[in-house]
Nucleic acid binder design. Structure first.
Length: 851
RNA sequence: GCCCGCGUGGCGGAAUGGUAGACGCAACGGACUUAAAAUCCGUGCCGGGAUACCGGAGUGCUGGUUCAAGUCCAGCCGCGGGCACCA
């Protein structure tokens, strides 16, 4: 039995697509556009099947939409800056640039073997000055627009590597590579003012109809909008006031103390004259930031001796503490404590013997007996007590009344607090985009003049010592101040690499333009119609990009505010993990299974299989592409990745699964190429009279076209594949008896499958006698009339229990259906001679007889 | 703690409130073959019948709504994810 030669066919069709420029596209305002994009990869070394699942989904959408007549933009590029390149440089004595570019070459070649319908002319890599020069310009524009600024802030500092670490790089309070306990350090850093758009970023989530609810919810949580009030407490014997934020102004009469963050201005002020407080603050700064550290940390405070005056009654004085649980970054960095209705405040009050006054009486509680012991009442149902003018109100009304009074007294106002903080973009790293500013002793911070852009990275850097190579480069940072000409210093920090990925989707529209974007191109192509990527970017990349698009719009670069009209988050590809007796991770191909099902390594040593995990280099549970594509071809891999699980769920890679897909590829291939009786020629007319079997196949064909089209619209690739397999089964069933109907069915199957298995389908399309390329063919249309059956099978139930089925003409009258149902022997037996009380007929579906 | 999602055969998974288990994987049995591979056919569970077939139970658990519930509602159990000293 002959086998489909995937390798030869795939090479052949890839060459033809390339020669005929099938996937090259241009801006064409006369035609409807569709922009499909998969999150571009970091060039870590090699592609694995996890990457490919993502790109295959995008490719199906791109090919499908093209067949539907859209002008489809489907580009690919490289998120090329980042830490791993530097780590490789430190470990392997290879320059980050070389390492990155050679990885890109490898991965590009791998991608090309997958037959993805990309416009490769548009490829970009973010590490090229031709790319990053534009973001330097954007940064300067942000600076002018007040969207970028520099401030001192507390950062994660790795004392061994001498660098700031991103939050993701701090694992349980320790640097991910050095293992050193991360310290908090106060450093001057560049920030982008994402908080400026906090409100908009939440509100317009509602307009993103084709985004997963889950992602929108995560962004909403992350931005964290809280309605409340800002209240100013006068401080006894002091001129300044203490600003606090609260979401519970209704509980102001329950206040027992005020507390400020250790890094609060007032705390620092007092500490300068109070060594004990200074020591306390230092201790707070030592505290770990890991989840465990926070959970076990005791609530501690230091009484400053200062008294705050209650805004509603000057006779009430509250002690002001510096407390370790108050965060400077949120609200005003200061709170009032209401122990009866906040658990932390209660813990704190019990420890420091502060009064606990309940001010909200839970529903159904007796005021005389209501007491707070060790558990605060934090619900917002209840009635205000002990609160003078608020007494008797429910919580919601009391909040409003309290805010009204605060505003009348000019002691504050209703306001909204955000959890979202400005985006710190400075990194003490070499392999990133240089931040285009100069520090001058006289002029301060001076932006690099536009004529001097790009500020390019020097190539001659060393990695033999820890820290930022740019900082110790002998000449690079020494420049003349563009304003006064005096010797000055270049900024040696580089941008967070999320900076590059925040605008790359727009650059694809005009990837070689001299300035960032051609308006004609971005106005045509943007927003991205379908974006596809992993859920791990639900907040970071997707939020940054939404912010960036707004910032670019404000600076006149773009005319849109939302970059991605549709988003799909696909699941991960997982694989078992393997470890030998020494605990070393093993690659799947190093593990063999003996006939008793036990696992061994190459030397015969026992191997234990661990849990199913996301494919990752460190655990070695990756399935490389080469092995799979060499053995089965790209199409088989694509089919398996699409068919085995719903796309949003995780997929477990199994060898048996890929073999099943390979069996199907061959089955379809034989269906066309190995026939005892040849199919009628292409374009053969459908006979007027069709046998029942022929009619049935025709119906299946047109039903399948309609269903698969619907499935692809809704990203249900696994179901689309199942439908096509069903049609294949139907084609098999009719055997060589079918003529024109069988050709019609096979052609439909091939065309429907083409987005998923493009090479095989081109091969079959050609074998079926066609001259055209499927890659540029239009999508098949279902004939609704042909998809409808003349007869339908009705299920017949007695008391809701299935008792049989009956084949009847479509749209038969209810009475006829009832009669036919009652005539069934199984129904009569179930009725046991009783007469039906009621019969429900759902046309063309079901008859339910109730006795 | 708060918010969200999900529980269906041995496995991945299908089912606009209307015949649960499509499609596939695995396993078992059979056909073809000197043999193997490949290919093809059959098989969800329990009880009875060699077989056709007949009966029953069944979508995490307990209730409810309905002629009819995997699907809707309430409560519980379990798993997964996000956020969290956020005032």
């Amino acid at each position: 039995m002959a086998r489909y030669n995937a390798k030869a066919a795939e090479e052949k069709w890839q060459n033809i697509w390339r020669e005929r420029r099938c996937f090259d596209v241009e801006t064409d305002p006369q035609r409807p556009k569709y922009y499909v994009l998969e999150m571009f990869p970091y060039p870590s070394g090699k592609l694995h099947v996890g990457h490919v699942r993502n790109y295959t989904m995008g490719d199906v959408v791109a090919r499908y939409k093209r067949a539907q007549g859209f002008n489809v933009l489907h580009p690919m590029g490289w998120d090329a800056f980042g830490l791993p390149a530097e780590n490789a440089a430190i470990a392997g004595k290879v320059h980050p640039k070389e390492w990155t570019l050679s990885n890109i070459d490898t991965m590009r070649a791998q991608l090309k073997r997958m037959g993805l319908a990309y416009d490769w002319r548009r490829e970009i890599a973010t590490c090229h000055p031709d790319y990053y020069r534009h973001e330097q310009k954007m940064f300067l524009d942000f600076l002018k627009a007040g969207l970028a600024y520099r401030k001192e802030s507390w950062v994660n500092w790795d004392p061994v590597e001498n660098t700031v670490l991103a939050n993701e790089q701090v694992i349980d309070g320790r640097g991910w590579r050095s293992g050193a306990a991360v310290e908090k350090r106060l450093l001057s850093q560049w920030f982008l003012k994402i908080t400026e758009f906090a409100e908009e970023l939440v509100v317009s989530l509602k307009t993103l109809e084709r985004w997963p609810e889950r992602v929108k919810l995560m962004q909403e949580n992350w931005i964290g909008r809280s309605e409340g009030a800002r209240v100013f407490f006068a401080l006894k014997g002091r001129r300044e006031k203490l600003e606090i934020f609260t979401t519970r102004p209704d509980t102001l009469f329950g206040a027992a103390f005020c507390a400020i963050a250790p890094s609060h201005k007032l705390a620092e002020q007092i500490a300068s004259r109070d060594p004990k407080l200074a020591a306390f603050i230092a201790e707070c700064n030592q505290m770990g930031t890991s989840e465990a550290a926070i959970e076990t940390a005791e609530k501690r405070g230091y009484d400053t001796g200062i008294k705050a005056i209650h805004p509603f009654d000057p006779a009430i004085e509250l002690p002001v503490y510096v407390a370790n649980f108050v965060l400077m970054e949120y609200g005003a960095g200061a709170i009032f404590g209401c122990p009866a209705h906040d658990q932390r405040d209660l813990d704190f009050a019990r420890k420091y013997h502060l009064p606990v006054t309940p001010v909200v009486l839970p529903p159904g509680q007796d005021r005389a007996h209501f007491q707070i012991a060790l558990e605060a009442y934090t619900e917002t149902q209840g009635t205000l007590i002990n609160s003078r003018f608020l007494d008797g109100l429910d919580v919601a009304h009391a909040k409003r009344a309290a805010i009204k009074r605060i505003e009348e007294l000019q002691a504050g106002e209703g306001t909204i607090a955000w959890r979202l903080r400005d985006w710190g973009v400075s990194r003490q790293r070499y392999w990133g985009c240089p931040i285009p500013v100069i520090h001058c002793a006289k002029c301060g911070i001076v932006p690099v003049p536009e004529k001097d852009l790009p500020v390019t990275l020097p190539d001659d850097v060393t990695f033999d010592q820890p820290g930022n190579p740019l900082d110790r480069h002998p000449t690079w940072k020494h420049v003349a101040c563009p304003q006064c000409g005096c010797p000055a210093l270049r900024e040696t920090d580089t941008f967070d690499t999320f900076f590059e990925s925040s605008w790359y989707f727009a650059r694809f529209c005009s990837p070689r333009a001299a300035h960032a974007f051609e308006r004609r191109d971005v106005d045509y192509w943007l927003p991205v119609d379908q974006y596809i990527g992993g859920i791990e970017h639900a907040v970071l990349h997707l939020l940054y990009s939404r912010f960036f698009t707004r910032a670019l719009e404000r600076c006149g670069y773009l005319a849109i505010t939302e970059p991605f009209a549709g988003l799909f988050t696909q699941g991960m590809v997982c694989h078992e993990t393997y470890q030998d007796t020494a605990g070393n991770w093993l690659f799947p191909e190093e593990v063999q299974r003996d006939d008793k099902g036990r696992l061994h390594d190459a030397q015969g040593g026992p191997v234990t299989a661990g849990r199913l995990e996301k494919m990752s280099k460190s655990k070695r549970n990756v399935v490389g592409l080469e092995t799979i594509v060499d053995a089965f071809g790209a199409d088989t891999a694509r089919l398996y990745l699409l068919s085995d699980s719903p796309p949003e769920r995780d997929l477990e890679w199994t060898d048996a699964g890929i073999e099943g897909a390979w069996r199907y590829a061959n089955r379809l291939w034989r269906l066309v190429t190995e026939r005892e009786k040849p199919l009628p020629p292409a374009g053969v007319a459908m006979p007027k009279e069709l046998s029942a079997a022929d009619q049935k196949l025709r119906r299946a064909t047109h039903q399948t076209i309609a269903l698969v089209t619907d499935d692809l619209e809704k990203f249900r690739f696994n179901r689309a594949v199942a439908r096509i397999r069903e049609l294949t089964n139907a084609i098999d069933e009719i055997g060589d008896a079918g003529g024109a109907t069988q050709r019609e069915a096979i052609e439909a199957a091939v065309r429907l499958l083409a987005p998923m298995m493009p090479h095989l389908c081109e091969e079959l399309w050609q074998a079926l006698g066609h001259q055209t390329l499927l890659a540029v063919e239009s999508w098949p249309a279902a004939d609704a009339a042909l998809a409808i059956a003349e007869t339908v099978t009705l299920a017949v139930q007695v008391n809701g229990k299935l008792r049989g089925t009956v084949e009847l003409p479509r749209d038969i009258g209810d009475d006829d259906a009832k009669e036919a149902a009652l005539a069934l022997p199984t129904v009569m037996r179930a009725l046991e001679g009783k007469s039906p009380r009621k019969t429900i007929v759902v046309p063309n579906r079901i008859v339910n007889v109730v006795v």
